[in-house]
Structures are given as C-alpha cells and as structure tokens.
C-alpha cells in the first residue's frame, strides 16, 4: 500500500487519485469506492453529487488557485496540492493561504515531486500530510527522511506551524 507521512509518522494510505486523461472532460464519471481525491475540475462539475461523499479529497495542480475552493471548504475533508516539479513553489503559498485566510482544518497533502529536503518547508506552510511518489523512497529511506521534518528547531519567522516569529516567542538578549 502507498506510504504517507502524516503528522510526523509514516503510515499506509489507501487513498486513490483520480486523474483525467489529456482531453478528457470532467463530465462523464465513474468514481471508485473508498478514499478518493478528485481533480479540481471534477469537483467543480459535480459539486452537488460529491458533497455528500464522506472523506472526499480534492487535488489542485500548481497553476490552480485555492480561491476556486473558497466558500466550499466544509464539504471537503482533504486537499492535495501537486508539485509538478519540486522547484515549483506555488503550493507553499497555496497551503499557507488555505490554513490562514481560508481557515481550512482538514488534511493538506503534498503530492507529486515531493522530496525530503522540502519536508521542513512544507510542514511550516501547513502541510500535515506528505506523500512522495511511490518508489521514490524505500521504506527505510522514508523513515530516515522523517528527520528532515526537524532540520531546524527554532525558525525565525512566523508561519503556519509556528504562528509567532522568534522575536515574539522568546526574549532575546541584546
């Protein structure tokens, strides 16, 4: 079963991702059972039908704006943000916006080209679930990679995981 880092631990994860083929529209649709992430376009096209579904996830590509979900976050239990390339940093802003401005409390999952040296930044921006591509890391490597979540113990600036900057958290002597 695919692995997932959730709240700092490696767990098995059964969620499936619906991916539209090139040129395939979101209209016709047979959804598999079980935990599922659908693309934004599918969610938008079938909002009514999908909103009753338990454990529904929506995944966004890096060029899709979280604003498209605004106002409808209650019916979504998880949002996955895709990193088409690990150097594409848009999802960091997307996650931070979901947590702060839009108050999203459900799971935010990093998918796509997700590498351990990005874990620290992801966690700081509000990702609580991190899913490297299947086969990217062996089980042992993934366990080892958990240390990357803790690369820095006392960051300077406020972010989602630590909403106060260092200068408000601790008294610093001049």
């Amino acid at each position: 079963m695919p692995k997932l880092i959730k709240n700092g631990r490696v767990i098995d994860d059964a969620a499936q991702f619906l991916v539209l083929d090139e040129g395939q529209g979101p209209e016709a649709l047979t959804l598999p059972d079980g935990p599922l992430f659908v693309p934004l376009a599918v969610w938008q096209a079938h909002r009514g039908a999908l909103s009753g579904r338990a454990g529904l996830g929506v995944w966004l590509d890096s060029n899709e704006n979280v604003e498209e979900l605004d106002g409808n976050l209650d019916s979504i239990s998880a949002i996955a943000l895709n990193f088409p390339k690990f150097t594409d940093g848009r999802a960091y802003s997307a996650a931070a916006l979901l947590r702060s401005r839009y108050g999203f409390k459900g799971e935010i999952r990093a998918i796509g080209e997700v590498l351990r040296d990005q874990f620290f930044f992801m966690q700081r921006c509000g990702f609580d679930a991190i899913q490297p591509k299947a086969g990217k890391y062996s089980d042992t490597q993934l366990e080892e990679a958990l240390t990357s979540l803790k690369d820095f113990s006392t960051p300077y600036q406020a972010a989602i995981d630590q909403p106060e900057p260092l200068f408000r958290r601790v008294p610093r002597a001049a």
Binding site: F86, T87, D88, G89, Y92, S93, A96, Q118, F120, F121, M122, R124, C125, F152, P155, Y156, Q157, A159, P165, L166
Partner: peptide
C-alpha cells in the same frame, strides 16, 4: 536577513 532566512513559503520562487 533573519526574516528571509529559510522563509518556508519563499524557498522555491
């Protein structure tokens, strides 16, 4: 400098 050091949102601009 301190604010920008390892700013998590802006490491992959």
């Amino acid at each position: 400098r301190q604010w920008s050091t390892f700013h998590p949102e802006f490491a992959f601009l």
